[in-house]
């Protein structure tokens, strides 16, 4: 059985997170800023008794963080720490048609380090995004 993908809208594009990396999809209603942390760290949010580190994905990609209140977030646990990745919208969970394949050419600088490859699903080619790279931030190369 092929891997499941979580389709989100990020930086104006439909991209895929490997569903295996994703623990939950939540709405974040309150973010406590963490002064001094890198720019792509929006702050902290509470999910039940857990404290999530909130990652501003557009900022992690090197874009200006959007002005509209983004509330959809993808929860992922990396190295034992829970994170909430703010995205523009969470769209769907679909089945990949095959294994991801390497990108045949260089992507736009924006996605260069965040992209793991591409994956065909529902007759479309989607960019597969690396959760850990987004969390690490500064994924776009200075073009």
């Amino acid at each position: 059985m092929a891997a499941l993908l979580l389709i989100v809208r990020l930086a104006g594009e439909r991209v895929a997170f490997p569903a295996a990396d994703v623990e939950a999809v939540v709405e974040i209603d309150y973010v406590v800023p963490a002064p001094g942390a890198p720019a792509h760290v929006a702050g902290l949010a509470a999910l039940r008794s857990r404290v999530l580190t909130v990652i501003d994905c557009p900022a992690a990609l090197g874009l200006a963080s959007g002005e509209t209140p983004r509330r959809d977030a993808v929860v992922a646990v990396v190295d034992g720490h829970p994170y909430a990745l703010l995205v523009e919208a969470v769209e769907d969970v679909i089945e990949a048609e095959s294994e991801p394949v390497p990108l045949p050419m260089r992507t736009a600088p924006l996605w260069r380090r965040a992209a793991k490859g591409m994956v065909p699903a529902e007759g479309e080619l989607l960019l597969l995004v690396d959760v850990a790279a987004l969390i690490a931030g500064q994924v776009s190369e200075a073009a």
Binding site: A34, A37, T53, H81, Y83, G137
Partner: peptide, 9 residues
């Protein structure tokens, strides 16, 4: 413990 992203502050 805070996540590494927070600890870098």
């Amino acid at each position: 413990p805070a996540s590494p992203a927070i600890m870098t502050a």
